[in-house]
Design a protein around this nucleic acid. Structure first.
Lengths: 333, 333
DNA sequence: TTGAAAGCGGTACCAA
DNA sequence: TTGGTACCGCTTTCAA
C-alpha cells in the first residue's frame, strides 16, 4: 500500500480511501491511485485490516471426524453453504476420532482467530473449552453433544429412531434381534442402544447381551462380529446396524454367508435401494442437521444469547425390503 | 499480551519470549508469566504474528466442485492429510461448477493470505490468475488442467482409461457402444470421449454421433438420455458411463427398463460390487491424485521452481460383471 | 479533499 | 536475563 501511495504520489490514507471506496476522494486522484494499484498488482492484506479493526476473520471452523465418510461430507457441504450465505470462509480439520487431536485442532483454529466453531466431537470431555466459552467464543456441537460443559448441540433423535426400527422388526415377528454398533463410549451409540432396549422392553422381550456387539468401526471387526452372531446356536433373525459404516460391513458379511436375516440400518446410504435386497433404514436429512447447527452458530455470533440449546432432528423409517423379511424356522426346529 | 506483561510485572518482550519458549528467561520469571497467562486466559493472536513476521498463514486453500460428491470428498480428505502433515490448515470452498464463483472464491482466499491453492477448476479460462502467478502465488490444478495459462496440474489418464474400457467391451463382442457423459466443454469429458473414439477407430468401428450423449450432470437428464438410447431402433448393446454420478443414474434407468446391456463406468463407487450385476469400472486412487497435487504444492512453496508439471495418474479396469455381458441378438434379427 | 501520526498485537534488534 | 523501540500493513482520528 505504501508503494501504491508513492507511485500515485498521494498519502497512505488516500489509497486506503480508494481501496475502501470511501467517499470524498477526487475522481482524478482515485484514477491515479487505481492505476498505481493495477500496475503494481497490489492487493490488500486482510489480516492487517482485521488486526487493526480488531474484528474476527469472517471465518468459521468446522471439525469433523472423517471427510471421506459420506455422512460427514454431507454435513460439511451443508455447513459450507450456510457459511457462504453469511459470507464466511470455512477452515476445516478432521479429528480422526482422536480426542487429543480434536483438542489440538480446536486450539489451533481459535488461535488463528476463527469467529466460531461447529464440531462433531471426538472426545467426551470438553471442559478444556470452558475458558474459551467464558471469553465468548461460540461453539456448536453437531451430531453429538458436549461432555462436561453446557453448549449448543444439534443431535438426532437416536433413541426414538432406533426404537421405531426395532419395533418394526418385532412387528414382523422377530424376537432375536442383534444390535451391532460403535463403542458404547460414543454418545450416539449409547442413545441408539437405549432405543433398542426400549423397544425390546415394550414388547416384553428379554435383553440378551450376547446379541449386542459394540466395537471400533473397523470393517474386519464388524464382519467378524456379524459372522459370530450368525454362527450362534440360536442366531438372531434380524440385525440392527447402528450406522452407515457398519451397515455396509454387515451387509457384506451376510452376503458372503448367503444368510437371509432381516436388517435395518441407521443412516441412509446411496444405492441402498439398488441392492439385491433393498435396505430398510432409519433416515434423516444430514443437511438439516448441519444447517441447523451452522445457523445457530451464526445466530450466536449475531448476538443471540439464549441459554444453550439442545435441538433434536427427527428421523424416519424408510421401508425398502430388508427390514420386512420375516424369521425363518431353522431346519429341524 | 500487554495485560499479561502488566500482571506479571515484566516487559512485553519477556512475555513474548516465554510464549515462544525462547531461551534465556529466568525460570522464576517464566513461572510468573505463565501464571499471568493462565489467570488471564491469554492466547496469542496468530494474525499479528504473521503480520509482523511477514510470513503467510500456514494455510492452503482447497477449491472443489461439490463436497457431497464422494469423489471430491476423497480428494478433500487426502489434501487435508497432506496439509496436516505439513502443519498447514486448510480453508475450503466449493465452486459449484460455476466459473464466476470459482474466480470469486480464488480472490477471496488469496486476499485472506493463503500460502497456495489446490483447485479443481470449474472454469476454462484462468488467465485471471496471471498476475497472481507472476507474483509468486502457487496454484496446483487437480483433476483438470488450467485454461489459458501454464500451471501445475495432476490429472487422470482419461483417454487411456476410457480406451481400455471400450476395448474391453469390443472384445466382448460389442459394436454399438454408447457414451454418456458430461458436457464436452469439460476437459475430462473431452479426453474420455477421445479415448472412446480411439478404441472404436482401432477396432474399425464407425463413430456414430447418435450414440454419444453429453450434457449437464443432472440425474433426470441422464436417465432420459439412457432411455432414449435404449429406445433407438438399433439400441446400443453396451454403455460407457463417463463418471460416478452418471453411472448411478444410468444404472437406475437401466434397471427400471429391466434392460440387460453391458455397462462400464469411469470412477469406482461404493457398493459397485454389491449390486445385482456388479459393476465393472475404470478405477484409480483418488487419494493418490489429491496427495500428488498437495505434495506438489508444498514442494513449490518450499522453493521447487521446475517448469509447470502435468502429472498423469494411471487408471485400471476393475472387472466385476457388468462389463462382461455379451450382446444379445434382438428378437427377430 | 488530503495528510500526519498513533495504534491494532505482536516480534526483531540492540542496549541495558 | 531483561527492556526499549521501531515496525509489519492497515485504519482511525484529527488537523490542514
Amino acid at each position: 500500500m505504501r508503494d501504491v501511495a508513492a507511485t500515485a504520489g498521494v498519502s497512505l490514507k488516500t489509497v486506503s480511501r480508494v481501496v475502501n471506496a470511501e467517499a470524498g476522494v477526487d475522481a482524478r486522484t482515485t484514477a491515479r491511485v487505481n492505476a498505481a494499484i493495477a500496475s503494481l498488482g497490489y492487493r490488500r492484506n486482510d489480516a492487517a485490516v482485521n488486526l487493526r479493526k480488531g474484528i474476527p476473520l469472517a471465518t468459521i471452523g468446522l471439525i469433523i471426524e472423517d471427510l471421506a465418510n459420506p455422512f460427514y461430507a454431507s454435513l460439511a457441504r451443508a455447513v459450507e453453504e450456510v457459511a457462504t450465505r453469511h459470507e464466511h470462509a470455512i477452515v476445516m480439520a478432521s479429528s480422526a476420532e482422536d480426542p487429543e487431536r480434536e483438542r489440538k485442532v480446536v486450539f489451533d483454529m481459535l488461535q488463528r482467530g476463527v469467529d466460531g466453531l461447529v464440531m462433531v466431537p471426538a472426545g467426551h470431555d470438553h471442559r478444556y473449552l470452558l475458558p474459551e466459552l467464558s471469553r465468548g467464543t461460540r461453539v456448536v456441537f453437531l451430531d453429538r453433544g458436549p461432555g462436561g460443559i453446557e453448549a449448543d448441540s444439534i443431535v438426532l433423535e437416536n433413541a426414538r429412531g432406533t426404537r421405531e426400527a426395532v419395533e418394526h422388526l418385532i412387528a414382523h415377528g422377530h424376537r432375536r434381534i442383534a444390535f451391532v454398533g460403535d463403542p458404547i463410549e460414543v454418545e450416539t451409540s449409547r442413545e441408539r442402544l437405549d432405543g433398542y432396549r426400549e423397544a425390546l422392553d415394550a414388547a416384553g422381550i428379554d435383553f440378551e447381551p450376547a446379541l449386542v456387539r459394540m466395537g471400533p468401526p473397523r470393517e474386519s471387526l464388524i464382519q467378524a462380529a456379524t459372522r459370530q452372531l450368525l454362527a450362534m446356536p440360536q442366531p438372531p433373525t434380524a440385525i440392527f446396524g447402528q450406522n452407515n459404516r457398519n451397515a455396509l460391513a454387515i451387509i457384506r458379511a451376510m452376503r458372503s454367508l448367503t444368510a437371509t436375516v432381516a436388517f435395518i440400518g441407521f443412516d441412509d446410504f446411496e444405492l441402498a435401494d439398488m441392492l439385491p435386497v433393498p435396505v430398510t433404514v432409519v433416515s434423516y436429512d444430514p443437511g438439516e442437521l448441519a444447517r441447523t447447527a451452522a445457523e445457530l452458530l451464526f445466530a450466536r455470533l449475531a448476538g443471540d444469547s439464549r441459554p444453550p440449546q439442545r435441538i433434536l432432528v427427527p428421523t424416519r423409517l424408510i421401508v425398502r425390503g430388508s427390514g420386512e423379511i420375516t424369521p425363518r424356522r431353522r431346519p429341524g426346529s
